[in-house]
Design a protein around this nucleic acid. Structure first.
Lengths: 346, 346
DNA sequence: TTGTAGGCGTTATCAT
DNA sequence: ATGATAACGCCTACAA
């Protein structure tokens, strides 16, 4: 077992100084052809590669970016990671991941762990708990220490940094307008409580669409669910809630749901109650998930272009990292959402 | 903007030496209570945290593990990552990801990038291209340099290292036996070409089950698909292949498919051809995916316990990293698969 | 053309 | 009780 070879070892073997080796390997004109040959041949033979850690310490630059997300077993987030990784790799960066698991404490710990020199900058989507607590001190501290942050999707005004978001408001509005155009007169909304920023914006889009098209807002058509309940493991509860919605509003002919699970469950419950999708009820969800495409009927959705978000976020971060003149201006890039029509709408 | 504070700066401010500060912060008995108080208070005030990179260089240990996988937008792999991250974090490690995107070249590049000091060890699942080329030099080189590797799921005998696999053979055999017990007489197999190790093992499990129960092996019941075609974006092609299978064997009453997509597509095609699942045809897939649970009818599957695989892999790796006495013995942990019965079987 | 020295931030060993 | 020094691996300004 041959350990990784260092400059020092090469220098010793060839009986020259460390700096000669270093220069020879970087093809410096200071070094004679002869020595260069010798050194380079030896280095190649022993497969010399500079030690990243030493370089990081010397250059005070790790060429690594940290991404903190609430959950990884989730299509949206894994697509974002793919985008981040793609751009990061192209530009010579590694990606280190931290999962907050929707917990404020884990988010803080993860960030502190990485902020101590391990990475050059963060890409982050806030945990639900952080959104509820509205405690953003760890972000501001990180930024104050000169470490740039790019936030995506779940962002918040209180933090001054670059952001990448999807146009939740417009996306929702378009979706609901589509339903209106398809002659839905009683469009229900299945959303989350307002502290989840994206849920709030999508709700606003729904309201705006109704208003624009002169449809009355009926409170009983709006179902606000507690996003802290894990309905994925507690499907029955979700179904009950939605069933309730249908029962108290027999005229519902359209549904806009702010995520995939709500939308699919709504379709299922509708089917069970004897409604036909899309004939009796049309449904649109808001998601990048796989289930929509494979469900029967397949679900029309507002796509968030998750991978693109990741690419943009990585691009913004690396631009900032590589721009010396500390740009103290922050931008928010808005990714256009896209309505993908499938079988659940006419 | 206050940059991260270092020992040096604290020493300067308090007019003591760097080593005094270092010792004081680690509560060394060598240092007077007085000085300790002063130093610790100051450190706390300026939120001093040791620089990870400097520690890594000094200790020749990064406390970071690298995970190289073919794809991240995939339930199985993201669950594995979650498991790895969970254990890694518990034991004080970070996780850095590299995506091979099923490409041999990217796998090699990613590994070389990380092997130069950035991490202490690897967790890897081979890319399809690597499996085809059967070129494993990069793994052996890494191992030779003293960097431990743990492989999971897509493993290969040629590489000597710890491994975590699911019992593909047994899992497949059990699934097919379930179909046999449910009185299927003509069980089709939808699988991949043999170079994908897991595909091969699952195929063998199918064959074994038939043999054990005295069912004849009929070549026309086996559909071997080219796993290089991305059927996810080319669903039509997949449907055609499967339709062909049905058409040439009108008596098929059971299907075992080695992944989720094949199984779901088979169900859909079966439905379209007028068969009813599970009454006319029973179907079992092999996967940890979400689609199975949410499809109609929901799909019975062999679960791989992906997260557990990740946890085990991380545990094995960290054990090896923290055991000085270079254990030159390697173990292969086999995770028991589990047949999850849903609506696609009786 | 080659080598020396200093520094990135930390800790450990060995003086004082 | 405190401090100087060396080392981890690398690079580079400056000597020789």
């Amino acid at each position: 077992m041959k350990r990784k070879v260092t400059l020092k070892q090469i220098a010793k073997e060839l009986d020259v100084s460390i700096s000669t080796v270093s220069k020879a390997l970087r093809n410096s004109v200071e070094i004679s052809e002869d020595t260069k040959q010798k050194v380079q041949a030896f280095a190649k033979l022993y497969n010399y590669k500079p030690n990243n850690i030493a370089l990081s310490l010397k250059n005070r630059k790790t060429n690594t970016i940290g991404i903190i997300i609430p959950e990884i077993v989730h299509h949206f987030f894994s697509k974002v990671i793919r985008g981040v990784e793609l751009v990061a790799n192209q530009r010579g960066y590694n990606v280190i991941i931290g999962l907050s698991n929707e917990s404020f404490a884990k988010e803080v710990i993860n960030m502190e762990m990485l902020a101590n020199g391990s990475i050059d900058g963060f890409i982050i989507s806030l945990s639900k708990e952080t959104l509820q607590l509205q405690d953003y001190h760890h972000f501001n501290e990180t930024i104050n220490q000169g470490m740039p942050i790019v936030m995506f999707d779940r962002v918040v005004n209180e933090i001054q940094c670059d952001k990448v978001i999807v146009d939740d408001f417009e996306g929702a509005k378009n979706a609901v307008e589509k339903l209106i155009k398809n002659e839905c007169k009683h469009i229900a909304l299945i959303t989350t409580k307002d502290y989840v920023s994206v849920g709030r914006l999508r709700t606003q889009g729904y309201l705006e669409a109704l208003k624009t098209h002169g449809q009355d807002l009926k409170a009983e058509l709006i179902l606000k669910l507690d996003d802290n309940v894990d309905y994925e493991v507690n499907l029955d509860a979700l179904e009950k809630e939605i069933e309730q919605l249908f029962k108290s509003n027999s005229k519902i002919d359209g549904i806009f749901a702010v995520n995939e699970l709500y939308a699919l469950t709504a379709m299922r419950v509708a089917g069970r109650l004897g409604f036909r999708v899309p004939d009796d009820i049309q449904v649109i969800g808001f998601t990048d998930g796989v289930l929509s495409k494979h469900s029967t009927p397949s679900l029309s959705t507002v796509s968030q272009h998750a991978q693109l978000m990741g690419e943009k976020a990585a691009g913004l971060l690396i631009d900032k990292l590589e721009n010396d003149h500390e740009d103290e201006t922050y931008q928010t890039q808005i990714i256009a959402s896209e309505l993908i029509e499938r079988e659940s709408t006419k």
